[in-house]
Computed example of a mutant assay.
Amino acid sequence: MKNKSYIGISFIILVFGIYAIPKIIDRVKNNDISVQDRLNVPVKEKKSGEAKNLVKIGNAPQFSLTDQNGKTISNKDFEGKVYVVEFFFSTCPSICPVMNQNMLMIEDEFGKNKNFGIASFTINPTNDTPEVLKKHAEQLGVTSPNWHFLTGDQDYIYNIANKGFNIYAGESKKEGDAGFEHSGYFALVDKKGNIRSRKDKSGNPIIFYTGLNYKDKEGFQDDLQGKYKPGIHAIKEDIAILLDE
């Protein structure tokens, strides 16, 4: 009886081999063996492919300023890095604290990556000296050596903001503005120095991301200036895509 059982099992194995082995060989020849797993789940697209959907808005402007450590920092220091740009001032009583906290969320996720950086340009350089900016960075809890708080000539910085990145910054006499007003937008720059962004639901480039909200998974959120832009959740996704590009 045992011998008959062995013969039966051997026969089943032989039949399976005759049926399955040619199919396996064909898959290897056609390079299909890694296309899907045995549960027939398609392999996800690579993020580098998704980066093609991030529009190139234009070249980031050239600049050379002083950071919180008294070091001269230019756009060349960001070559080969993905970086985020903001315009703020340390005594801002309104939107800057929100922007700073949201930028900290970005730093927490990407700050240890040597290919990532942040450029925070002050629009009140008269007050925001390197010493003031260094204290500001310490109070925020900034740990990344690639987060540079930049100061210099005011007109020069305004030119970088308004003409270079097309992010509004200026002086203000309105009560509650502390003498300055600016957009709450963040700009995203890729490793080659191109300003990049995703598209909205209509297929148009959003150009900038609002630094004033985080919970934007469902779409667009009011950035307190009457406009709608994807925020921190979106820019974090797109930073990850560009880092893999």
Rank of each mutant, 00 (worst) to 15 (best):
F78E: 09
G176M: 15
N3A: 10
P93Y: 13
L54C: 05
E131V: 05
E45I: 15
V85C: 08
Q139A: 11
L65G: 00
T126Y: 02
L188H: 08
Q101F: 14
M99V: 01
D223F: 07
M103C: 04
D108P: 11
G179N: 05
K163C: 05
S144A: 11
M103K: 01
E107Q: 09
N146H: 12
N3Y: 09
R27A: 15
D32M: 15
Y19K: 07
K134V: 00
S120I: 01
N113I: 13
L140I: 03
K236N: 08
N159S: 12
S34Q: 15
T72G: 05
F78H: 09
G80E: 14
G17H: 01
T122H: 00
I239A: 03
N146W: 07
G58L: 03
N69V: 03
Q62R: 00
T122Q: 00
E50Q: 11
P145Q: 06
N159M: 07
N30R: 15
I157W: 03
E181K: 04
K81R: 15
G152L: 01
Y228T: 09
I95Q: 10
F11W: 07
L188N: 04
Y228R: 13
Q36M: 13
A60G: 02
Y83T: 05
D223T: 03
E171G: 12
Y209M: 12
I33Y: 11
P125M: 03
G203E: 14
D190S: 05
H182K: 03
L39S: 10
N159K: 13
